[in-house]
Amino acid sequence: MKYRALGDTGMKVSEISLGTWQLGGGWGGNFDAIAAHKILSTAVDQGINFFDTADVYDNGLSEEAIGRFLKTTNEEIFVATKCGRHVSPHVNEGYTVALLRKFVEESLRNMDLDTLDLVQLHCPPTEVYERDEIFELFDKLKEEGKIQNLGVSVEKVEEAQRAIQYPNVKTIQIIFNMFRQKPAEEFFKTAKEKNIGIISRVPLASGLLTGKLRAGTEFDEKDHRNFNRNGEAFDKGETFSGVDYSHGLKAVEVLKEKLGKDHSLVEKALKWILMHEEVSTVIPGASSPEQVIANAAVSDASGLSKEEMNAVSEVYQEWIREEVHSQW
């Protein structure tokens, strides 16, 4: 496993880390604490030292599982969580200093921690980025020792640019993958200049870039790939990276032809992200220890050739750009 600096947070994190949206349950399955522990343990065995969670993941059960696991290991593990998605309805007016403070303190209790390495605003409404008092809260929480760093998980590149105007924002978590390439255009350059840590989320486009999904694949009724394809529950860019499912399947087949079917598309997709030096870490999820092992191995895999990088660019330009580029 290789490690990269997470901006100027002082943390050196595994370049392949672990996202825990589906930890211990998959999307739609019941939460399984034993499965969660196995996944977390396997991740650490593979050299992963950064877990990304959120208070809304399984309504706190993901945080609680991480907290229990931390008591069983002596390894240094960095934990990032998120707050804000419990605001309902999820609108600007619902974001208050008092409520966000309450969320942070609940996350501390869920994980039985004294301080949080990184707290991220969880895809707040665009208007929140204009409210100084929201960002000033996290300076106070840091002074109190409850958090060490503030980050923001964003939907749009424009929001990322707004967020890093606040000097206490140290990291940006953003959707970046073969089918969502816009962040690399201007934002990465600005982030590098400001020494902002970049966390790449949804790296496999909700499974599209595994190459294993088919037109007839059935998803659990509680799986966002079933109920959020058009943004019925939250931003549609979170599901298949905003790409129409049937169109995305066709694009994946073209991608596989260009990259060669003898290679793992998952490996190529994760490695493609790591070819961008501005990225600090990639956080694929996993619903089994085997997936964790396969993902972690990508760190030591060979990089993509110039021809392969060009092939990915060609597929994006021909199949994906028109559909997603201007939206996020």
Rank of each mutant, 00 (worst) to 15 (best):
E105R: 15
E105F: 13
L108H: 09
R109I: 11
N110A: 11
M111N: 03
D112E: 12
L113P: 04
L116S: 05
L116E: 01
D117M: 04
V119M: 02
V119W: 01
V119N: 00
Q120C: 05
L121P: 03
C123Q: 02
C123M: 05
P125N: 05
E127I: 02
E127M: 08
V128W: 00
Y129A: 02
Y129T: 02
E130T: 08
E130M: 07
R131Q: 14
R131A: 01
I134L: 04
F135C: 00
E136P: 04
E136M: 11
F138H: 02
F138C: 00
D139C: 03
K140H: 10
K142D: 00
K142C: 03
E143T: 08
E144L: 01
G145W: 03
I147V: 05
Q148A: 05
Q148R: 13
Q148M: 04
N149V: 00
L150W: 00
G151W: 01
G151N: 00
V152I: 02
S153A: 11
V154D: 00
V154T: 04
V157L: 02
V157C: 01
V157F: 06
E158I: 11
Q161E: 14
Q161G: 13
R162V: 08
I164F: 06
I164S: 07
I164T: 11
Y166D: 04
Y166M: 10
Y166G: 05
Y166N: 10
Y166V: 10
P167G: 11
P167C: 08
P167Y: 11
N168I: 09
V169D: 03
V169Y: 07
V169G: 07
K170W: 12
K170C: 09
I172V: 13
I172S: 07
Q173K: 10
I174T: 07
I174F: 03
I175T: 14
F176R: 08
M178T: 08
M178D: 07
M178H: 06
Q181L: 14
K182P: 05
A184Y: 09
A184S: 15
A184Q: 15
F187Q: 07
F187E: 04
K189H: 15
T190D: 11
A191I: 09
A191Q: 03
A191D: 14
K192W: 09
K192A: 13
E193H: 14
E193Y: 13
K194V: 07
K194P: 02
K194Y: 06
K194T: 10
K194E: 09
N195E: 14
I196N: 01
I198N: 06
I199S: 10
R201T: 03
V202S: 03
L204V: 12
L204F: 13
A205K: 05
A205T: 10
S206P: 10
L208M: 09
L209P: 06
L209G: 04
L213S: 02
R214T: 15
A215M: 15
G216I: 14
G216V: 14
T217P: 12
T217R: 09
E218F: 13
E218C: 15
F219I: 10
F219Q: 12
F219L: 12
D220L: 15
D220I: 08
